[in-house]
Structures are given as C-alpha cells and as structure tokens.
Design a protein around this nucleic acid. Structure first.
Lengths: 216, 216
DNA sequence: TAGATTGTTAATCGATTAACAATC
DNA sequence: TAGATTGTTAATCGATTAACAATC
C-alpha cells in the first residue's frame, strides 16, 4: 500500500457498503457515479464519501465523478477481494451449513473446504460437495491445506477451544458467530458476528423510537 | 423513560455487550463489579462505561461499584428484554432454520411463531415445533397473531418484497439478513445483519494488519 | 474514619461537515 | 469555454478520556 497514514476503522466499515452499491450499479450497466449520487444511495454524505475514498487515493475525476467499474475494482483490491481465501467451518449445525451453502461468499473468493463437527451423525454428510469431518481431524486438515480463515459456529461453551485450535494451526483470520469474545494472539484477526447483540439493539430501537440519535 | 436527553447510537450498541458480560458474571455467582473490572472484560475504558450507564441513571454506588444483578436487570429493561416478542421468519432455508433453532433467542424473550417459504417441499415441515407455512399465508398470519418482529432470510432479490408485506401487516421491527438495504416507513425499525460486509471487513483487516487504527 | 469508586464536569481527541480552489 | 464535481483544507460537531469532588 502506497499510503502513509492509518485509516480509521469507521472508514473501513463503510467500504464494504460502497463496494456492494458499486457492484449493483455495475450489474445495472451504470458506469459513472458522483459522490452525491452515492450519497443518495448509501445515506452517507457526499463529503464523507469523498473523504473516505481519498484515504486510499484519488479515484475520481473533477467534473465527472467516479468510474463505477474502476472504483469497484479499487475497493475490491483494498478489501482484499482480489484474492482467494480458504476457509473451514467448526460447527456443522444449521448456521454452519447456512454459511457453507451460501454461494455469495464463494463468488467473492471465500472457499469453504470443509466443515467439522463432533456429532457422529453429521460426520460424512456433504453440504454442496463440502464434507463434514470429525473435529478431531481439523488441526491436521488446516495445516495440510493451508487454510486462511476459520469460522466458528459452535456453541459459546466451546468457542474458545475452537479458537485455540485455529491459532495452533496457524490460521490468521477468525470469523466468530459464537456469542463470546474469544482471546487470540495479536496477529490473529477476529471478526465477530454477535447476533444476540444485534437483536437486542433492534429491541431497544423498537422500544425507544425517539430517545436515540438516528444516524446511518 | 424519565430521562430527557437522547442517547447516541454508539452508546446503545455497547449496551448488549454489557448485558452479556453481566449475565456471565451473574451465572458465576459474582454480585459486585466496578467500572474498572468491566473495563478489563469488555475493553472499553472505565470512564466510558460510567458515562454510558449514566445516560440512563445512576446505577452504581460510590466506593462500592455496581450490583451485578441490579445492573443486568436495569439494562435488560432499557433494552426491552423484559418483554416477550412474537417473531416470524420469511425464508426457511438454512439460515432461517438456524435462527428458528437457536434457543438463546427464545430464552431472551423472542419467540418464533412460524417460518414461511414459497418452496412446497419445505411447507409443512416443523423445526422444533415451529411449522413452515406457505409464504402466501404470511400476511394474514401476522395480522391474526399480532406479530412484532419480522425476520428476513430470503435472497436479496425478494428482500424488499418481504419487507413490504411486513410493513403492510403492521410489523414494527425487521431483522434483515439479506445483503440489501430495504426501504420502509420511518416508524418501522430495520436492523441489518450484513454478513458479507462483516466478511469483507475481516478480509481487509487480514490484509492490512497495521494500516488501520484499532479500536473496538 | 479511611479507602474506594461513582457521577459528572472539563479537556482532548477524532470524525463529520462545510466550503472552495483545482481541474476535468 | 462553462459547468460540474472532485480533492483537500478548515470549521464544526460529537465522542472519548481525564480528573476530581461527592459520597458510600
């Protein structure tokens, strides 16, 4: 990366949304977009969008705006979506299977090589060609296959245990769906999807419609 | 609510995390906690935690800290977790089934009354006593049963259509898992779980370990 | 009482918005 | 060229942190 300054995490969290809208535009055959139009779509201000993008380079052109395809590709590169990632899923329950089944992730370059579970009834079953294996085999499988990302869809009580296996196996990114904050070394990235926290926030907003400051 | 000032959304997003840690503490039989100890657990500063809580009232006691059970109950009330919510799920694929299967939500007062799908092969099947019904019946079902929350686990392409049915049926809260921003009237709350955006952020962090400012 | 820790005000820091010169 | 829209600086706004008096 040629840039010098660190980018704030709030900016980064907006990038995937830009990327999604740009993909939609591209699919519609639109090849030019202004920050103002992006603002109308995303709800962020035009100024903020220009600021955000300029953290990574000047992708636009005065008087014209942004080229949709180019901007999409640039954001894709910034997000690391120009690479292929190998992933495994620990926990082959409904949620693990849902993720394995979702083609969107594969289309974005995230390939699920295997699911793992301790339940003998599940071991051997295939989800869309992806085999469910014994959790005991997970560590060696990850090492042999050079897996990049470990997904956690086991119950809260075994989440840390799974994370420990991932760390031992050399995985550098963990996507955690268990409602627990797992501990890992500094060089391992954890991205949490805490569904209960999302649901509780919905509950708050439903109960306090006018007692909070709307944003986003 | 007896308070006068609006609370920022960033504060509200932290409340469920406090609630979760307090529940854990209570289960461990710990009945007293200081903002400093909560800080060690959550990673937020003690000062921030005290500020956050004081948006809603003075729940602590100088020289002592906070009573775990009382604070948990207060936060539960603030989040609206002292009520029961009736929910339905549109889309009975793996993700819809995963949510229907997850007991944690039910324990928190969110009861899934029914799933709906258009796939005839799924209609009639039961997930843990919860029946999958024809999507055509959804609108009348919601009206008859006074459903509070509508969950969207259909593909992106029919997300808006489902949202429209929810709005027509009088639902006031939507939990949306489709990777699309749905449009609803102002008085309907939408909480999005954009899994692709979460995964893309993970990808960014893995590729740019030192180019962003850690926070969270 | 002495020690601890809150509640709350003030200071700092960072993020968003506004404005406009640069330039396509 | 004239009009449009970016890139970027400066101004504003809001959120976090620091500090400490209040008080249990």
């Amino acid at each position: 990366m040629e840039r010098d300054n660190k980018v704030s995490i709030t900016v980064i969290r907006r990038l995937p949304k830009y990327y999604r809208y740009l993909s939609d535009l591209l699919n519609k055959g639109i090849n030019r977009i202004s920050s103002q139009e992006l603002s109308n779509m995303t709800g962020f201000t035009a100024s903020q969008i220009r600021q955000d993008l300029n953290n990574f380079g000047g992708f636009g052109q005065q008087g014209y705006g942004y080229n949709v395809e180019e901007l999409k590709n640039q954001l894709g590169k910034i997000l690391g979506l120009d690479k292929i990632y190998k992933a495994v899923i620990a926990g082959a329950g409904n949620l693990g299977q849902a993720i394995a089944n979702y083609r969107g992730f594969q289309d974005a370059g995230f390939e699920v090589l295997s699911l793992f579970d301790k339940n003998p009834k599940l071991i051997g079953i295939k989800i869309r060609d992806i085999e469910i294996r014994d959790i005991e085999e997970m560590e060696s499988f990850i090492k042999e296959n050079g897996v990049d990302i470990g997904i956690i869809t086991v119950p809260k009580s075994s989440a840390q245990e799974i994370a420990d296996i991932y760390v031992r196996s050399g995985i550098k990114g963990i996507w955690n769906f268990a409602p627990a904050d797992i501990k890992v070394p500094d060089d391992v990235i954890v991205e949490n999807v805490h569904l209960n926290e999302s649901l509780f926030a919905l509950s708050y907003f439903m109960n306090n419609k006018n007692d909070y400051i709307r944003r986003d």
